[in-house]
Computed example of a mutant assay.
Amino acid sequence: MIIELPDTSTKAIAAELAAARESHSLTTGRVLTLLVAIDDSGADTIDDTLATLRDASFEHPARVLVLISGAPEAATRLDAQVLVATDAGASEVVVMRLYGELTSHLGAVVTPLLLPDTPVVACWPQKAPGHPAGTQLGRIAQRRITNLRRGGSGMTLEDLTAGYEHGDSDMMWSRITPWRGIVASALDRHPGKRVESAEIAGAAGDPSVDLAAGWLASSLGVQVTRCSAHVTGDFPIARLVLHCEDGDVVVAVQDSHTVRISVPGHADSLVAMVERSDAESLAEDLRHLGPDATYERALRGLSGVDVEL
């Protein structure tokens, strides 16, 4: 169900949420408030974002406040939609279009609508701010999630590293979690052998590959070389070679569903791997609301990566 509230106020939105909860017998077991900031960049982009939020909500029922910033020079106005029941998944969603002076006061807009006594998470599924914790929404939230893969704003991993504060994370990091687990498993099959260096190849310009290289550099304490390679399907990493003292451990992605592992002294094995959607990546980020120390170390590890074009 979609309830239209043109030219409205946060007080009217709060009243409508309360009324919808009573009339539709909605549960009140929301586990967090999710603040989502996007630009007014077209109906398709907004619909894709709402679909991602709806799919992620089934694991994390939340009050989702979506802020769409329009023209700052327009007359000040707030138009809202309240989405409940099937249109909102397991959450209750408020889509707010802001115009004029309101585009500069996102924190003040959302404050009256925050759920009491629950964590607050801020998310930028499109353009990532260089310093998430320094934004109005970032100062409210305990956890801040960006999506550099879909940034399109010239942001780089180096910018996120420079602006990092405890509580930051990026969906490209959770996107490669299954692959990182496979790499760790491959090393477990080759215990006691020192890794001397590593080479990782993947899609040119994809920050997930760069971050994977930073993770290897920080975790293994070795020099990592990152180079470009053709990838099959949507998964950005093609091949990893870990040069060990008695031979190479190789993790090669066959397709978006299968990885081949080669370990000295063992027969090659095939392991299933599922390509993660944005909704699945977001759902994982919402499982851990504290600081992600491994992500921080991966960002810092970028300084130990050699990039070959």
Rank of each mutant, 00 (worst) to 15 (best):
V263D: 03
S218I: 03
A279G: 01
A80I: 05
A88S: 10
V251Y: 00
A108T: 15
H266Q: 15
D278Q: 14
D87V: 04
M172G: 12
G304P: 03
G290V: 03
M155C: 09
K193S: 10
T118N: 04
P178R: 03
L115D: 12
I38T: 13
V110K: 01
S91Y: 08
L26P: 01
P236Q: 09
S228E: 13
E101F: 06
L282Y: 01
Y295G: 08
G167H: 02
S69C: 09
Y99F: 15
T86S: 14
M171K: 00
G152I: 04
M155T: 11
L286E: 00
D159C: 06
E196T: 12
S25K: 12
R260A: 09
T161W: 12
L114M: 03
T258D: 09
P119C: 04
A37F: 05
R63Y: 11
G265S: 04
Q223K: 13
L309E: 14
L160R: 07
D7A: 15
C244T: 15
S91V: 10
A15C: 05
I46T: 15
D285M: 10
P236G: 11
S25P: 00
R287Q: 12
V84Y: 07
V110A: 01
R175K: 10
T86I: 12
R260T: 12
D39R: 15
G214V: 04
A141G: 06
R175D: 10
L113K: 06
G181W: 01
R276G: 09
L83K: 13
L309I: 14
G214C: 04
D47F: 11
A85I: 12
T45Y: 10
L34K: 08
E101A: 15
D206Y: 02
V249G: 07
